[in-house]
Amino acid sequence: MNLNIKYFGQIAEITNQNEESIEFSGLIVSELLDVLYSKYSDLKNKDFQVAQNQELVLGDKEITGSEIALLPPFSGG
């Protein structure tokens, strides 16, 4: 299935883009993360949450939506 992945903050700096389209054949969120980790090894050291169709999801959640977002925490003020 074709997924649109959105990146925020430091994650976008690592992937060098705000969003991209990825062809994904797996089932759950953590499998998608493995794909992204192998593509961008620096992601492994980063804290972020994953949202699917604008809703936060955990790693064991099935990928059903077409829009995924990788969201790091910000501390600046």
Partner: peptide
């Protein structure tokens, strides 16, 4: 949203990274 603080040093914090 973010259950625990990120590991120290993984996110620029006190050091000025610009804004």
């Amino acid at each position: 949203l973010f259950p625990n603080p990120p590991q120290e040093g993984t996110i620029p914090n006190c050091s000025e990274i610009g804004v």
